[in-house]
Each structure stands twice: as C-alpha cells, then as structure tokens.
C-alpha cells in the first residue's frame, strides 16, 4: 500500500507523452517544425473537448435523473433536457411518504447496518491483518492462502446454509446476519489490503517498541493502527459504499417492511410504481445516492489508492 502505484512522486520525466516525442522528433534535421509549434496545443484542446464530451455523455443519465426529480412526472417523458422549467419539490415530499414508513425510516435502517459493518470490518480485519503481517505462527502460509481464496468465493454459494443457520438463531429480520459476518472478518480482502499496508510499515518500529516492553496488543493499538489510517479509511469507505448498495443479502435476510433498508424500500417502490409516479421514485433514488456521492467526494484519495492496490470496485 505504501508502495501504491497510484500517485508516485512527480517524476522528472512525467511529460513523456507528446512533449518528449516532439522534442525527439525536433532533434532530427527534417522534422516538421510547424507541427511542433501548433500540433501539441491544438491536439491538447481537441483531446480535452473530446474527454469532456464523453464524460457528459456518461453522466447524462445521472444528471437527467437529478433534473427529472424536480419535474412533474408528465413533463419527465416529454422533455429530455436538463434544465427544469420549474423547481418542484413535490416529488420529494411525495416520494418520502409514498411507502409504509417515511423514507427516513429506511435511511436510518441502512445507516445502522452500514455503521455496524464499518466498525466490524475495521476491528476484525485489522486484527487478522496484524497476525498475518507481523506474527510468526505455524501454518501462516497456508492460512494466508485460505484467506486469499475466500476472497473469490461468491456469496451465492453459501447463502442457503447461511440462511438456515441465521433463521435457526432467529436472526432473520434483524440486522445481525448482515453485521455479525463483518465482525468475523469475512470480507477477506480488507484483511489482504491491510496486510499489504502493514508490511510497508518499518519493522524497526515494532522491534523498538518490543524492546521497550510493549506486548503485541500495544504495538497493534499504538503503533500499527495510528500509522495505518489511510488503509483504515479505504476499508471504511469501501465497506460503506458496498453495504449501502448491497441488495442481495438484505433482500434475503430482511423481509419485514419495518426492517427494510433503502435498496429494499426502493425495490418495493419500483414494484408499486406505474408510469405515473416516476417523479417521486426518481426523487428517492437521488436521495439514496447522496450518501455514496458524498463519500465519493470526500474520500476520493483513498478510493483511488484502494482500487489501485487491490483492484476492487
């Protein structure tokens, strides 16, 4: 993680693209000089225009949903433009109260699940990672391999027995089936992510601490964790986004409307929606995306680092 390939220190040769090439080209006697002056800047502008246009096309559906959420439903289907002719908050109040409970109830449920999962992952994954990165014990290599393999195991393969297990514990329609697995470090690749990070922390630090009489508990709490804030942040952010977006396991473990989380509420909403109430549905969809968007805005640095080191979505 510390040797993350994302944003290395600015290299002296950072402009190896057109600049270097044209320099090289210019050193040849017959190089076209005019292109050297005009080419790169024109091309650069063209490239920016193309990139912005492409970005707009990509984000257009999102922006359109945002704009539509402020339009009366009958207008949504008549004008594909982005600027609403009137700013109508009616969809939001209608959508908020369209289901059995006000939408805030579902937001609260989702927030509780997310909070539990984030805390669970932070504690359990960092503990396991410390053992794999720093402790010597028998069979470490094998257990590490087992941990890596469990990353690739699809949840669908184990969901049926999990359901049976949790229903025999009478945990269906509680948040426990969603949170307890995180407390037990089943999101293995956060373990992997933190192992990678811990390995980058100089061993001299914990050796010095051990010489001063620190046990592993204190080394973990007072040296490793404070130095691992970036890895912890990455874990927290990804856990937040995935849990917030998660639909499959919530669909299976939560069946009572008062326990519904945001994705389940939206699903009920879309099932009950005829073409006449797309407006309120869009409004609540936007509401459901806001937390993810905020996390994206403020956590970008860690997101990019996290994906680049572990390849997660």
């Amino acid at each position: 993680m510390t040797d993350a390939p994302v944003r290395p220190a600015p290299r002296p040769d950072a402009h190896r693209g057109p600049a270097t090439l044209s320099e090289v080209a210019a050193s040849y006697p017959d190089s076209p000089r005019r292109r050297r002056r005009l080419g790169p800047s024109l091309r650069r502008v063209a490239r920016h225009v193309a990139l912005i246009a492409f970005g707009l096309i990509m984000l257009y559906p999102l922006l359109w949903m945002l704009a539509s959420s402020f339009k009366p439903t009958d207008l949504i289907f008549r004008e594909p433009g982005l600027i609403p002719t009137e700013l109508d908050l009616g969809n939001y109040t209608d959508g908020w109260n369209a289901l059995l409970h006000p939408f805030g109830h579902y937001l609260m449920n989702s927030a509780l699940v997310v909070l539990g999962c984030v805390l669970g992952n932070l504690v359990s994954c960092s503990m396991a990672a410390y053992a794999f990165a720093r402790l010597k014990f028998r069979g470490r290599g094998i257990w590490f391999a087992v941990m890596l393999m469990s990353i690739m195991l699809p949840i669908h393969v184990i969901i049926v027995p999990q359901y049976i297990l949790f229903s025999s514990l009478e945990w269906i329609n509680t948040f426990l089936p969603l949170i307890v697995p995180k407390l037990l470090a089943t999101d293995a690749f956060f373990v992997f992510l933190m192992v990678q990070f811990f390995r980058g922390i100089p061993k001299e630090l914990d050796e010095a601490a051990r010489l001063d009489g620190c046990g592993h508990g204190r080394i973990f709490l007072q040296i490793m964790l404070p130095l691992s804030l970036p890895a912890l942040a990455t874990t927290a952010i990804f856990t937040f986004i995935w849990t917030w977006n998660d639909f499959f396991s919530q669909l299976i473990f939560l069946t009572r409307p008062d326990m519904y989380t945001v994705p389940l509420a939206l699903r009920t909403f879309v099932d009950a929606t005829s073409n006449s109430s797309w407006g309120p549905l869009f409004a609540m969809s936007i509401v459901s995306l806001i937390p993810v968007f905020l996390v994206f805005l403020f956590g970008q640095k860690y997101l990019v680092k996290g994906i680049a080191t572990t390849g997660i979505k």
């Binding site: 990509m58 984000l59 999102l62 986004i241 995935w242 917030w244 977006n245 639909f247 945001v262 994705p263 939206l266 699903r267 879309v270 969809s285 936007i286 459901s288 995306l289 993810v292 968007f293 994206f296 997101l303 979505k313």
Partner: peptide, 10 residues
C-alpha cells in the same frame, strides 16, 4: 463515479 453507483438499486 459510475463504478461506485452502478451496483445500486437506484
């Protein structure tokens, strides 16, 4: 951004 939002119900 779409990668983050793409898996959501919304």
């Amino acid at each position: 951004l779409p990668s983050l939002l793409g898996g959501s119900v919304a």
